[in-house]
């Protein structure tokens, strides 16, 4: 009987050793790493093993970090491939590859690699104040399409009432505003129904244009040439129920202000400035239309007209 007990004990010991072998971490078999080159090699093999696991194993065993097959030695993996029917298609994996997969599955190797990579990336010190770099801020200004709409809103009669003068104004708007994609922004393409100007300029035109001297040049020129046409003055005043013979009273000037800058507040000083211009024109012997022309010109040239 004691012989059987002894035999039983030996069998138990063999079983324990076998189980212990399965739990032996690969990391315990890796010699200590003393320099960066060796560490980088380990990192490279670890990453390669992760790629290999994802490509060859993850479809059945889940992701490399969450699989229940972690901490398997190369021998475990090889045994599985050659003994499990559904894994036999992986017989072609080389010993190097199964070694790398084993590294990727090893918890201690994972910690070692992550700690190494963290050591290369220390917590940043507080930044010195002179290194501040402010984000770009652009005032929101309208594109050429917005300006086209604005100039039509101010200076062109409703469609049913248009005259030769309105046609002249519309042509000015087209030439000086709509055709200036590069300067005034507002992209469009050759497939659009209306995309005037150069194809390259139109495609690259900014959706959020910047204020600059070129843009200001076009808008000032548009104001001067459009307001040189009498019809534009008549139209603008008519939109606020005024005519060229209307007095430049505070009330009437406020209406004109609201026409150009809807909903925006203005100061008494601004109203008085327009009134003074109008009065000065009259004092110099200018007629009604010219007096109003100069008054409207200053408002048209203001940057407020294009700021959203």
């Amino acid at each position: 009987m004691s012989r059987f007990y002894f035999l039983f004990l030996i069998i138990l010991l063999v079983g324990c050793k076998a189980e212990h072998a399965e739990e032996t971490n690969l990391s315990s078999q890796i010699p200590p790493i003393t320099d960066d080159t060796e560490m980088l090699k380990l990192v490279s093999q670890y990453n390669s093993g992760r790629d290999q696991f994802s490509g060859s194993c993850a479809s059945c065993h889940g992701s490399v970090d969450n699989t229940d097959k972690r901490n398997r030695s190369p021998e475990n993996i090889q045994n599985a491939i050659f003994s499990i029917g559904t894994m036999k298609f992986l017989k072609g994996l080389s010993a190097d590859v199964t070694y790398e997969i084993s590294l990727a599955l090893d918890d201690q190797v994972k910690s070692q690699v992550e700690e190494y990579l963290r050591s290369k990336d220390p917590t940043p010190p507080p930044p010195p104040e002179e290194n501040f770099r402010l984000a770009e801020i652009k005032p929101i200004i309208g594109t050429r399409f917005y300006l086209e709409s604005t100039f039509e809103d101010l200076f062109v009669a409703p469609a049913a009432q248009r005259t030769t003068g309105d046609t002249q104004i519309l042509n000015k708007i087209k030439t000086l505003i709509v055709n200036q994609g590069a300067a005034l922004g507002g992209p469009c393409r050759l497939y659009d129904s209306s995309c005037p100007g150069s194809l390259d300029d139109n495609r690259e035109a900014e959706a959020l244009p910047a204020a600059n001297a070129l843009r200001k040049g076009y808008t000032i020129r548009a104001c001067e040439e459009i307001l040189a046409i009498n019809q534009s003055v008549n139209n603008a005043l008519a939109k606020v129920q005024l005519t060229v013979t209307s007095q430049a009273s505070q009330q009437n000037i406020a209406k004109v202000f609201d026409l150009f800058f809807p909903g925006k507040d203005f100061t008494q000083n601004e109203l008085n400035s327009i009134a003074r211009i109008h009065q000065s024109c009259k004092n110099k012997g200018m007629n009604d239309i010219n007096s109003w022309r100069f008054s409207l010109l200053g408002l048209c040239k203001s940057s407020l007209l294009e700021v959203l």
């Binding site: 005032p139 000083n269 601004e270 400035s273 211009i277 100069f294 200053g298």
Partner: peptide, 14 residues
């Protein structure tokens, strides 16, 4: 008039 206009532009400036 141009100076008056300039002053108006400067006053009505965002």
């Amino acid at each position: 008039f141009k100076w008056l206009l300039l002053s108006l532009v400067l006053i009505v400036n965002p």
